[in-house]
Design a binder for these strands. Structure first.
Lengths: 332, 332
DNA sequence: GTGAAAGCGCTAACAC
DNA sequence: GTGTTAGCGCTTTCAC
């Protein structure tokens, strides 16, 4: 049973493709197709379970109703949750998501960007690593609808939905200092991401404003390709340095560190305060407790979709930068 | 700057569309296009950064190189992780994923299934809720390439990648009994999913084989639409019933229950053993500790993609049912 | 070695 | 009220 096309329907019913097409697209009345004809066509279409070919429609209309979702890793709960929220918001408007995980490598990012363009996605939602602005600049020059979230690049001008990174982190670290922490280490992934740099800056500022010497040895970078083991090793280093607090720049490392702490440093668990950017449910009860900076993910998703909608509709070039306020959740 | 098409390239270079198309598809040699022409075309294409329109190609070829990934919720770490593995495996073959989250509702599932068909996906990977077989039967009758994982339906004949549910759960519960648990409750989501029923059956069998009375009041179903709060409430019920162990049919409820246990039943935390289907890193150190049945997610992803590849290539109808062995991780 | 032309399934301007 | 037709961008058969 080959798939039926509009042409088949038209022939079998003795109408033209046009008439059938109009009726299928609810333009029957507008185009003065008689009620009777409309009903006949609709009934038949339902009977044979005709499914329009969205690809042909897309080609004709130059619009695919798909959006590319480019992030470091869809299995990271932060991107998965925002992805889910975006999926639902877009579905209401008839759009669907193609996903692409970059693993923070420029190579995969470029490959995926190309793929999205080839597939004629109508827009792009991206947490880019911004290692290389090449393709992004090209797309921006063509006014390709894009909205960036979570990550930014100071030299790239575009639509951003972000959270306050520096001050939020600063506040979280100051909170730890207020509660007595004096020797504070930091663990981060790839710091060549501007948003993460800002978080690290916030950490530095908090220390210097409280007259704590910044010791660069206490700022440890974990290996992206081996997050869990590397986090364990770097945490070990900080423990050996006898820190009384550790700051994490995202929740994935924090989760791994909680694991490492419980498995390998159980005896020190009361002596080290954890502070994390991003929240996780388990921070409510984990040992050690984790004071965290919670990002407003619903708002992020809402704004992202809203702005993308605007960009796709507007002929004019808009460039908004929306910075949301994260929330400090103190857990002592 | 309008996007260039093959036609533009051909005109600007003084060749025909055919020649350009051949060269672009690496058929230059095969079609006896002169080396010189080939180089000229390739150089120009690179210079103007020509991007082929995948939609047009798809329409012509009847193949979109996209796969639909239909699951209950992409923000569930289990589906996100498998999704990520599948994404990578498929990317190597030039396929990409469109995602669809059903929230376990038939309405959304049917909507998404239709969407996938309209979009002419080449295949479908699904963790269906199987509430209603209607659309799936239709697709199966058309030999639409589909591979099911995680969930099965006894009346639906298709390609399945599953894990042993009943015996694995039985083993986990027996393990708890061996270590002294006597009054064992169970918490599950929507049990109208066959795979979950099997897990519950495993629980029942373990009890009866050990001469523990099965008390249906101790089998609690949580509300899907309000997982966290409902889990808390149902857990409360079991605690009040003074169970000495609780069994969970998936990791999401277990995580919520750990949270509820720590926040609301801290004093009982030593008295209740947790047993969970699905694993989570945090089970290594959470209070209470969780003995879990870990699914082999890499294998699931690999088999799923392999079988889907076979189905898409074969003209013949194959129907494989692969049942993988999960691993019991005892944590006491 | 290269090109003309048909056609994938659909939409929509224009005709009658 | 309904039909004819061109064309979206690409592939591929057949011709020269």
């Amino acid at each position: 049973m080959k798939k039926k096309s509009i042409k088949d329907i038209a022939q079998e019913l003795g109408y033209s493709k046009t008439t059938v097409s109009f009726v299928l697209n609810n333009k029957g009345d507008e185009k003065n197709i008689s009620k009777k004809t409309q009903e006949k066509i609709l009934a038949y279409v339902r009977e044979v379970n005709y499914q329009p070919n969205q690809i042909a429609k897309s080609l004709k209309k130059g619009k695919t109703n798909t959006i590319g979702y480019l992030i470091p890793d869809i299995s990271n709960p932060f991107y998965a949750k925002i992805g889910r929220l975006i999926e639902d918001l877009l579905a209401d408007k008839g759009y669907h998501l193609i996903i692409g995980s970059t693993d923070e490598t420029q190579e995969k990012e470029d490959l995926l960007l190309n793929m999205f363009v080839n597939r004629q996605v109508d827009g792009l939602i991206l947490a880019s690593s911004f290692e290389n602005l090449g393709m992004l600049n090209t797309l921006a020059a063509q006014r390709f609808p894009m909205v960036f979230f979570d990550r930014e690049h100071p030299d790239f001008f575009g639509n951003y939905i972000l959270v306050e990174n520096k001050n939020a982190m600063k506040g979280a670290v100051q909170n730890a200092i207020k509660h007595g922490s004096k020797k504070i280490g930091l663990l981060s992934i790839t710091p060549n991401v501007y948003s993460l740099e800002l978080r690290i800056d916030g950490y530095r500022e908090a220390l210097s404003e409280n007259e704590i010497d910044i010791d660069d040895h206490l700022i440890r970078i974990v290996d992206n390709n081996n997050l869990k083991e590397s986090t364990k090793a770097q945490l070990q280093y900080l423990i050996d340095e006898q820190v009384d607090a550790v700051v994490f720049t995202n929740n994935q490392i924090t989760a791994h560190a909680i694991w490492a702490m419980n498995i390998f440093h159980k005896e020190k668990i009361e002596d080290v305060r954890f502070v994390s950017f991003d929240n996780l449910d388990l921070f409510d009860y984990s040992q050690p407790k984790v004071t965290s900076v919670a990002q407003p993910i619903e708002k992020i998703a809402n704004y992202t979709v809203d702005i993308l909608g605007e960009v796709m509709n507007e002929k004019e070039h808009i460039s908004k930068r929306i910075v949301l306020e994260p929330k400090l959740i103190e857990r002592l």
